[in-house]
Design a binder for these strands. Structure first.
Lengths: 218, 218
DNA sequence: CCATCTTTTGAGAGTTACTGTCATTTGACA
DNA sequence: TGTCAAATGACAGTAACTCTCAAAAGATGG
């Protein structure tokens, strides 16, 4: 995560660590890679917006991005990853681990989730909405969204395990992480359902209220 | 079996409704269909046990079941459906609706889930274990398992909505159904993880304990 | 039992997401 | 500038589906 390893004196960049990480000095190669990745995504979203997800083929996307289809799969393992991949997990883990470890886990999560979402709303609200709409509408995406590789479950599990200082997660932790991941994901989907009209922080609050109260009143 | 003619006076068959439903007079056509379906599944499981899920092609399954590949897809919309399709939802819904409607929903669920699982263990423990092992090991299956079409989420949602006597599920209900579905599915997967050694009823109890107590102690 | 209608099936061709290989290009670095 | 490693493109292949159409088999009315 620091300089490209190119031991060639990266210029010191002060500021918050995330910024630093994002604006780290990149070699020409890596700048190109990043640019290609962005181009692919941009062209893909454009085509998908025009024609729909299923009607847009990888070949079309590759053509629009001016790369070969082979190259597409070097950037995204599957077509679904175009929509499902993000890079927030490390930040989430950090935010969660930063909370006092004697705080109830649900509370830690609520704070971390709300913090993350605030950040997303500020910086890429539109993209988030587009993505969630797609996940909402395309069955293949909805399914994959819940896959353990891509979803927050592993994240919660990691944090729970580390907080408890045990080597392996317990049964209870697995259940908690799974339920929590499903609930938070569903919350964002419900926000997309309202086309972003609802206050997502409020929705998150209501979600955690259900969980904290043991599903009371149902 | 008898009555090749469903339209005219099916013989009254007393007994429990499920039995009746299952042993209903079937036309020759329908009996054949059922048999084909069973053959496909049996041959598929056999091949999968020998070669693994990914290495077993639909063409192989079709050949083993002595049908054409086209026909395979008339019986199972996708290869995944071979493993993921079951017919327990109606019984689950009934069991849930049969519980007193002033009972806390979580308690109703626990009872219904345990009842259903007891039934499964008695009648098809091995098949359940095989299926859950597959779901556990094959990413594509794990992913699809969580898809709203195949999972218990819709089921819980239906019951919650009907119990409340409202036309549309509320946000809270959606969250609850989602979390609950994820938790129960994960429980069965964890049971498969132990190769069926753990007492599944005990696992279910522990799962509901986590949910009822608002994830306390984590 | 026959004639007709409907459902089920098989054959085959086509699409698309993905995989693997190999030669060529391009940036890194000395 | 020359050498090496990473990135790319061209190409061939696989397997899960989809569609269409004609043949086979069960259902139905006489």
């Amino acid at each position: 995560m620091n300089a490209t390893r190119p031991a060639t004196a990266p210029p010191a960049a002060p500021g918050n660590p995330i910024q630093v990480m994002l604006e780290a000095p990149l070699s020409l190669r890596e700048r190109k890679k990043l640019k290609t990745r962005q181009t692919i995504r941009r062209e893909a979203y454009r085509l998908i917006a025009e024609q729909g997800y299923e009607n847009t083929t990888v070949d079309q996307i590759a053509a629009a991005a001016e790369i070969s289809p082979s190259t597409f799969f070097r950037y995204f393992a599957t077509k679904e990853d175009l929509v499902l991949t993000d890079e927030y997990d490390p930040a989430m883990i950090e935010a969660l681990l930063a909370r006092p470890s004697d705080e109830p886990f649900l509370r830690s999560c609520r704070e971390a989730v709300i913090g993350m979402i605030r950040h997303l709303l500020e910086h890429e609200r539109e993209e988030l909405l587009v993505r969630m709409r797609l996940v909402r509408d395309v069955p293949a995406l909805r399914a994959r969204m819940m896959d353990s590789a891509n979803d927050p479950r592993q994240l919660y599990l990691t944090v729970l395990t580390r907080r408890a200082g045990v080597p392996e997660p317990t049964f209870t932790m697995r259940i908690a992480a799974t339920a929590l991941a499903a609930a938070t994901t569903e919350t964002v989907l419900q926000w997309a359902e309202s086309e972003g009209a609802e206050d997502i922080a409020d929705l998150v609050d209501r979600t955690f209220a259900v969980l904290e109260n043991g599903f009371a009143g149902l």
